[in-house]
Design a protein around this nucleic acid. Structure first.
Lengths: 240, 240
DNA sequence: GTCTTTTTTCACTAAGTGATGAAATGACGG
DNA sequence: CCGTCATTTCATCACTTAGTGAAAAAAGAC
């Protein structure tokens, strides 16, 4: 309403000062679609879904906002595209890692070995995959900790590989109760995601003795930490 | 600018259709300030800082947006007020719990005992403190996992009690290296925060065998899990 | 009672927000 | 060379946002 009669448009469209519309398409280095996804990924990881405007994404990617809508539709669809892009790669890598472990250690599997096969691919990808992957892990950690957000998304993409972890552990420790395995997994995933998202908190907390970017240090401790935790929970099963 | 000469105000202020301005102050049940903080706390916990507008907070609390600005100033200050309100209570409870443990178990402390003294107050508060505290923990978990957010805030409020934990553990295990203790603490905090934020993920993951609201189940496992993890990390110190 | 202070509501603004229609651009096939 | 069409930009819309100034109402002081 407001009964504004709509101002007569000061300049009647300055008409095409135009310095290049059209389609260079593949001109600007890599595919523009990927450039947009990269920009969105970094921003979403740092500030969360609502903390980012598509105008910021557009500016970061060096494109017009309309182009983002042209490729991805609404903002939420852009977010889903960011999330989806790497999820599949992740699941494949993890599946292969567990395949390899089960095959090479058939009959001689250990809790720590299974856990290593489950986590190690993520550490390696984060170390070798560049900034994009680091942003992605921070994003997943955030989604995982946002009740009104993570539920469905996380479940759809990551439940299968978790079920596989649990089943494999059940083979290694047939005496374990499923409830104990699920709770232990929840503890594991909390530790793992926090480590992968490299928040920098441990840097200041430890006054420079540790660095959250030092994934080697994580590797040297996390497997043992989680494995010992699993064993302890199984051994003192609550029914006892 | 826009050179709008200020429209003559279509209706020259309809003049007090007024159905109660003024100050019932303490009239509406509890202090309005607390009502606003409660509303903000719940919304921030579910949707994050940027996912909430002060209009939503106002609607939820049943007040005008201007009143929120009157009491708290800018949106960020409201958030800080929410964060601060419970932080002190938390630190006090934890300090007392560790005091009590150190006194009652002087000379006979264990890693698991120290960890229990560190975590147990949070579990009890979450169980006995009502929905407000549950929202608060979800909020802290989110802040903790948001790189561009948590840093300073988390450090200011929670570093002291963490340093105390580390120092006490160093007494129990003088052979431990500080780096190992800090890393183990990071794993612990990831697990603990995820458990406290009760995301509901474990419910669907375990197909109903576990419930994230079942903090008794957490208590029965988390202390043992973390303690075993600490001991394992200390025992296989990376220098070895 | 009147005066003052505190609390509450209303009306409003300037700056953004996500999203869209249409025009412009160039590559490509004919 | 001309038409087609995917791509890119511009201009703008309809709406929401955080935040403010001032009036109005109640409480308390005197």
């Amino acid at each position: 309403m407001t009964s504004q009669v709509r101002a007569p448009r000061a300049q009647p469209t300055p008409r095409a000062k135009a310095a290049g519309r059209g389609r260079p398409s593949k001109a600007a280095g890599r595919d523009l679609k990927e450039t947009i996804l990269d920009a969105a990924e970094g921003l979403f990881a740092r500030h969360g879904f609502h903390g980012v405007t598509i105008r910021q994404v557009a500016a970061e990617a060096g494109v017009d906002t309309a182009l983002i809508h042209y490729y991805f539709g609404a903002k939420r669809e852009l977010f889903d595209a960011v999330f989806l892009r790497r999820a599949e790669i992740l699941n494949t890598a993890r599946g292969l890692s567990m395949d390899a472990y089960e095959k090479s250690h058939a009959g001689r599997m250990t809790v720590e070995g299974v856990i290593e096969a489950f986590i190690e691919p993520l550490l390696r990808i984060s170390q070798d995959g560049g900034q994009g992957w680091k942003s992605y892990f921070a994003l997943v950690a955030q989604v995982n900790n946002t009740p009104a957000w993570g539920g469905e998304t996380m479940a759809r993409f990551f439940d299968p590989v978790v079920h596989r972890l649990v089943e494999t552990l059940k083979v290694v420790r047939p005496d374990a109760e499923y409830r104990d395995l699920y709770w232990s997994y929840q503890f594991l995933t909390g530790s793992m995601m926090l480590a992968l998202s490299e928040t920098g908190r441990i840097d200041s907390l430890s006054e420079g003795q540790c660095h959250s970017s030092d994934l080697g240090a994580v590797r040297a401790r996390l497997f043992a930490y989680c494995a010992a935790g699993f064993e302890a929970v199984i051994d003192r099963a609550p029914k006892a």
